[in-house]
Nucleic acid binder design. Sequence first.
RNA 1: GCCGCAAUAGCUCAGUUGGCUAGAGCAGCUGAUUUGUAAUCAGCAGGCCCGGGGUUCGAGUCCUCGUUGCGGCACCA
Length: 648
Amino acid sequence: MGTIIRFLEDCFKRGNDFSLDSHGYLPPLEYSSLAPHSTCNRNDSLMDQIAIKHNDAIVDLQTAHAQGISGEPILFDNSPAALEVLRHSTAHLMAQAIKNLYTNAKFFVGPVVKEGFYYDFKVDESIGEEDLKKIETEMTRLAKLKSPIERYEISMEEAKCKFADDELKLAVMERIPSETVSIYRQGDFEDLCRGPHLPSIGDIRHFKLTKIAGAYLGGDSSKEMLTRIYGIAFADKESLRLHLEMLAEAEKRDHRKIGNEMKLFTFREEVGAGFPIWLPAGSRLRSRLEQLLFKAHRKRGYEPVRGPEMLRADLWKVSGHYQNYGENMYFTHIDELEFGVKPMNCVGHIKVYEQDLRSYRDLPLKFFEYGVVHRHEMTGALHGLFRVREFTQDDAHIFCTPDQIEAQIIEVIDFVDRIMRSFGFSYKMMLSTKPEKAVGDDSVWETATNALRTAMERHNLAYDVDEGGGAFYGPKIDIKITDAIGREWQCGTVQLDFNLPARFELGYTAEGNEKLQPVMIHRAILGSFERFIGILTEHYAGEFPMFVAPTQVAIVPIAPSHEAYAKELSDKLMDIGADCEVFDKNESLNKRIRTAEKGRVPMIIVLGDEEVNARSVAVRDRRKREQYNLGEAEFIALIQQQLNEVHF
RNA sequence: GCCGCAAUAGCUCAGUUGGCUAGAGCAGCUGAUUUGUAAUCAGCAGGCCCGGGGUUCGAGUCCUCGUUGCGGCACCA
């Protein structure tokens, strides 16, 4: 959440206008300067002390006072620590309001999360979206009473007595190991809670309940479903306003909506859930990405290969997918034999490797494929292009010797860096190390993990470590990108694998003529084209840069007499690999320009007598929001240059 | 998979407590107009109201099963 606020602050500092102007035009953002920093939105009038920081923990004043602890003051502002306290108390205020409105309400847990806070609870009545307003109103009313928030401790035994008729609270207590528990009280409302809380509910003024949904008790799908209400709170009005604006902005950028408007892709009930259909505009965009990436792979020594869509089930048994991933796979029979539709491309690539006797001189071998895979995702998981059942990975497998690992990792990370920068994504990396259940020698794990570490450090790349979070076959690096409105997405992944080479008994002839086993590096950079294009759509709000835009140029001839020139230009653009569309319908000029603009085409050229005579074009540049005139040759050169601006 | 909500024209949406031939805007088609930078005018056409079953004299509307979507959860990463 902090990231989003900081981002919005950045935008406003830079004078970027977030809102749409009267024509629905969304100005491009400066994508590159989004590195997080620690600004917090301080407002002097708000700076009362609400808690202290003691040994890195946030301790509220009630607790500090009771236990006689002191520490660095936490003031009432939008710093992460202050927001944590504020939002926690807002969750309690919400619970109090719900309790007043639904007297038999029972509460489970109400933590602060990245997007604000939530509270899980149970009521007899059914609560819907429209009830949120009612609860908010009650919260406001209660906040105005400015009740102090008091804290006291009782023994677990007493607590179990106190909440004897509340099975949810009892369930909460099951999860608390300590002998005593703390109770917080505001007015006539009491709740079991470890805090920290504000001194008074009167400080809670700028909040909003955002969502209502079901959630399992304790996140356990075998347990009952509770009602969950999400909300957000800030120290000041302006921050709340910015946050709500940001949510509205995210909604405007929804790739499902923009994808529909721009006719990029669609889904159809009769085709089946999770199976995207790529429309011409989306396919042009996708094809540009594919072509750029193809060249980039070739330059780095990758060989294109292609495995079959279905492979015999026996192979999936050897690879371990049948046992470990079978639930997510689609199987079928051909004659007497069972086949599995591939959920990953590695087995196909292994078969390519096996096709020849390999020598250490051949390594590393890098095979890549735009691999179409099918995975059975649960219905509830499907979401636009972000989560589908059929998608195409920009997948590659590098077969190398253990001492080549480091260099290969560095190369892959450099590849990732090149691509993500081109799109204006900042990113961070996560190194996941050996899990408890793992295959392979410790020494190999150590080599591999160190190789990953060294690679990161040599590039001065910051990374977090997820201790024990690696795959069972090897450690990995995941790449998390941050988009233009501060949201994080996991795309690329680089995984070291000693397992599959062993299972398939892969080998290469080493210098001393001995048979050794190669290491496999699985890597994807975009992850999947579907997901990545979804992310790009939201990142750019549909305002794709020239090099991936579905249509580069819209040509608008003023009258039929200018159509011949339009056609001529259209051919020349096609020759340099630019797609264009001629808007020559029998409609007013204004209407056709409007249509072109609504299609978010980056460059519109208008052709009239002047242009035909001078062999020039009148450019309407959507990115720069400028109009200017260019000679035909200069214009073609400009488009060419913009298309060539990016190469990975 | 679970909880809740929804599905009406290619798209976005109206459609009263069940009651005449289901409406609008955009897009499409036809005609007029031939335009110098964000909607010219007129006309026409377009619907198994998601699918199956039921209640009812009568269902877009109510019930039920299913499909698909949406918001979460869980899953995945």
